[in-house]
Simulated scan of single mutants.
Amino acid sequence: MKSEDYIQQAYRCILQNDFVEAIRLFEEAISLNPLDAEIYYKCSITYARNNRLVKGIEYAERALHLAPKKVVYQLYLQHLKAMYLVQESKKQMDQLQSTSVIDLYKAVSSLKEAIELDPLYGEAYVCLALAYSELNEHATAIATLKEALFLLPAEQGLDKLLEQLKTKFKDYMNDSIIE
């Protein structure tokens, strides 16, 4: 079989949500045509869809290495790196009972980096807003969430989250005045 045949079979698998088999088929196509950046790129997308971001990043880097002037590869790699940073920050923040202020600031730093890599990645803004809120930086949290609302106007629940952050901010301000 030719690499194009493996790619066509991989697409059929993707349509059936069988990403594991699609990846295997892309890998076969790569073995037949190891200098084809487009196959690495397509395989990278499939790895990411299968929630294997590290492998997706690795293949996106290979695609970009093979075709350094292809802007779409650069943008996709930046998006994957942003996704990875958000994913790692979420894990850190999910362990909130054991998360120290230092860890929260590390998460903030990672989330800011994710936004620099992909300024249109709304989830990064939402996570950053939540991190700021945990640090009692409520005004910054609200401003950040408003940016997320601008990027994700139809996202369910963000308006409610904004109201919750505003309430936390008011409560924090009232507690500060009393002290």
Results as ranks from 00 to 15, higher is better:
104 L>P: 00
111 L>W: 10
135 L>M: 13
162 L>G: 02
161 L>A: 02
76 Y>S: 04
109 S>T: 02
117 L>Y: 11
97 Q>H: 07
119 P>V: 10
77 L>P: 00
153 P>N: 07
124 A>R: 06
155 E>P: 01
117 L>D: 03
107 A>N: 07
162 L>Q: 03
165 L>Q: 03
114 A>N: 00
86 V>C: 04
151 L>P: 01
96 L>Q: 07
113 E>F: 07
122 G>W: 06
78 Q>P: 00
92 Q>R: 14
81 K>C: 05
93 M>Y: 04
79 H>C: 10
112 K>M: 10
161 L>T: 10
119 P>W: 08
92 Q>H: 07
143 A>Y: 05
102 I>G: 02
113 E>V: 08
169 F>H: 15
159 D>G: 04
133 S>A: 15
122 G>R: 03
72 V>T: 13
71 V>L: 13
106 K>L: 11
166 K>A: 10
169 F>A: 15
86 V>F: 05
82 A>T: 13
77 L>R: 04
151 L>Q: 03
100 S>P: 01
120 L>G: 07
79 H>Y: 13
159 D>T: 12
110 S>Q: 13
147 E>N: 08
145 L>V: 03
154 A>F: 11
145 L>C: 01
110 S>H: 11
119 P>A: 07
91 K>P: 00
162 L>P: 00
121 Y>D: 03
96 L>R: 10
131 A>P: 07
163 E>W: 02
70 K>D: 09
77 L>T: 05
75 L>T: 13
128 L>A: 03
135 L>P: 07
117 L>Q: 06
73 Y>Q: 07
151 L>Y: 01
116 E>M: 03
101 V>L: 15
110 S>L: 09
137 E>F: 12
73 Y>V: 08
144 T>C: 03
104 L>F: 08
169 F>I: 04
82 A>P: 07
71 V>G: 00
159 D>K: 00
158 L>T: 06
95 Q>E: 10
72 V>R: 10
121 Y>V: 06
112 K>W: 05
162 L>T: 04
166 K>L: 12
101 V>Y: 15
156 Q>Y: 12
127 C>T: 14
120 L>F: 14
165 L>D: 02
147 E>Q: 11
152 L>V: 03
125 Y>L: 04
112 K>Q: 14
82 A>F: 00
